[in-house]
Structures are given as structure tokens and as C-alpha cells.
Design a protein around this nucleic acid. Structure first.
Length: 285
DNA sequence: CTGTAATCCTGCGAGC
DNA sequence: TGCTCGCAGGATTACA
């Protein structure tokens, strides 16, 4: 569910609520997450103060006093929020970190990880080197905002894959998922089945700009809430009201009124305007 | 190198 | 009501 804009929103929400506060307790549920939680991690975290809250791709990084990182991936249905301790825990809450009171006599609060489908995960790295090694091993690509046209050109030059598959590949660009891949391709007026190697320099430039533009706008709207995404303070996103193709199958294109098409690509449903995003030469619709 | 499908899960809406 | 089916913001793996 959550892609870069949603994860960025969670991080921005959590930062002022967590930085400077200590994790007092750690509770771990019985249900297995995507990656198994190691019992020693409780001890690694307990009593440490949060130094920083950051994002890398779709990963949430909580840096703690003395070096370790608590790292959370939201998968499809993950929610990471700070809630009042008195607020009942909802079902599917798998990790709960009790927070030091914000002020003497202040109300108790908790950092909670809830994930209905359990495709998400929480893990702990001993220090920044271990964290970097993890991303290095996974081949996680660069953040999309500082990318040069040169980088895109190099990535696309020999690519026989279609654009949709390329955008979803976290090794090419970190953070883009199904919604923002479709919306970016519409913005760039590029059909999702076009091959990377077939793009003209102008088209490469359009794609690079479109990804940045769409993600930036989505962050401004606090991401997209379709089913169950919420930010770190529990607020929903608003970008779903600005979707131009995603989830709009057979509805009119906002640019040309053609009916939005949908097909299965790279295992995901892809939405596009058959007119504004012309299919590759020799292909149908 | 490609693409495709199955897998990990639960919940929801559509259709009967 | 209740059932089945298909689908869902992700990522990995196996196989053609």
C-alpha cells in the first residue's frame, strides 16, 4: 500500500513525536511478520532515546541513541503511529514501543505497528554500517528527487523491460510503487508497455521530470488513502482525489476524455490513457 | 535477460 | 443473509 509519499508522510508525522523521547518498553505479538523479529532486539532498543526519524525508499528509519536503528517497512497494509497509551490497541497490532512521557506527569504514549496482511516488517540494525550493508546487499536504488537525466538515460539505454516494470524496480529508483508508476507515466505521456531502450532523449527527460513532479505533489497532499493507509498521527492522505488514471478504469481521461484502459503488467494492474499515452509501434491499444 | 505466476496474508465489494 | 470470486499502496522466488 504505502509508497514513497505515504512513507514520507509517516516519517514527517512521527519525527516531532519521537525525537528526543526514549523507548521504555518493547512488546512483540505472536503473529509472524514478513521478516522474523529477533528477541535480542528488545534489549537492543530498550531505554534508548530516538535521535532521528528518516526515510530511505519505502523504509522508515528510526535512529537511536548509541547507534542502532529500528527499521520498519509497511508492506501493503502497515501503519506506524503514535497513540495515547489509553487508546485501545486495534487488532493486528504487532509491535508496541512504550514511550517515555513527553513531560513530567504527561500522558503515556506508544509507538504502534499495525499490519493486517503482515507483508510489512520491523527489524533492528546494530549501527549505520549494518544498515548501509543491508541496503547495499538488496541493491536499493537511489532516491528519485536528485536523479540526473544522465542517470535515467543510463538506466533506460539498454533496458528491454517495459517502463512499468522499470519504475516498480526498487533497484532502479527507490520508493515508486503501483500508484505513482501509473500516475507518472500518464504525466509523462508514456505508455507503460514502452521499452526503456526505445525512449527518445526528450521522452527520458519527460519521465524523469514526471516522477519528481507526481511524488512531490503527492507528498504535499500527504499521500493517498485508498483503503487503510494513515499517516504517523493517524490522518488520512488526500492525493487519491487527484488520481488521473490509477483506479479510473473506463472513466474519462482528464486530458482528452478517452476512456482509461487497464492491463496486467509486471504482475500489477496498470492504468493508462490509450490516446495520451500512445502504445509502442506495432502494438495494439 | 525477459515475463509470468505463485507465494506470503486479511478484508472488502461485487455478483449470484 | 451468505457464499464465492477477484482484487488490493509490496517483494521474493521459481520457472518458461
Amino acid at each position: 500500500m504505502p509508497e514513497l509519499p505515504e512513507v514520507e508522510t509517516v516519517v514527517r508525522d512521527l519525527r516531532p513525536l519521537l525525537v528526543g523521547r526514549r523507548l521504555i518498553t518493547v512488546e512483540v505479538g505472536r503473529e509472524k511478520l514478513r521478516s522474523p523479529w529477533k528477541p535480542v532486539w528488545q534489549e537492543t532498543l530498550r531505554g534508548r532515546e530516538v535521535r532521528a526519524v528518516d526515510r530511505r525508499g519505502k523504509w522508515i528509519l528510526i535512529e537511536l541513541d548509541g547507534g542502532p536503528f529500528l527499521v520498519v517497512h509497511l508492506g501493503m497494509t502497515g501503519q506506524l503511529t503514535v497513540a495515547a497509551g489509553a487508546e485501545p490497541r486495534r487488532d493486528h497490532t504487532h509491535l508496541v514501543f512504550g514511550l517515555e512521557r513527553g513531560s513530567p506527569g504527561g500522558d503515556p504514549a506508544e509507538l504502534r505497528f499495525r499490519d493486517v496482511r503482515r507483508f510489512g516488517s520491523g527489524r533492528v540494525f546494530a549501527d549505520r554500517a549494518a544498515l548501509d550493508a543491508f541496503f547495499e546487499t538488496s541493491g536499493l536504488g537511489p532516491e528519485p528527487f536528485a536523479l540526473t537525466p544522465r542517470y535515467w538515460r543510463d538506466q533506460l539505454a539498454g533496458a528491454r523491460r517495459c517502463l512499468k516494470a522499470i519504475l516498480l524496480d526498487q533497484q532502479v529508483v527507490a520508493g515508486v510503487g503501483n500508484i505513482y508508476a501509473d500516475e507518472s507515466l500518464f504525466e509523462a505521456k508514456l505508455h507503460p508497455t514502452r521499452l526503456g531502450k526505445d525512449l527518445t532523449p526528450a521522452e527520458v527527460g519527460r519521465l524523469a521530470a514526471a516522477v519528481k513532479k507526481v511524488l512531490t505533489r503527492a507528498i504535499e497532499r500527504r499521500g493517498s488513502t485508498i483503503r487503510n493507509y494513515i499517516g504517523g498521527s493517524g490522518l488520512e492522505g488526500g492525493y487519491q482525489r487527484e488520481f488521473r488514471v490509477y483506479g479510473r478504469f473506463e472513466q474519462p481521461c482528464p486530458r482528452c476524455q478517452s476512456l482509461i484502459g487497464r492491463s496486467r503488467l509486471a504482475g500489477r494492474s496498470s492504468h493508462f490513457c490509450p490516446t495520451c499515452q500512445p502504445p509502442p509501434d506495432g502494438a495494439a491499444g
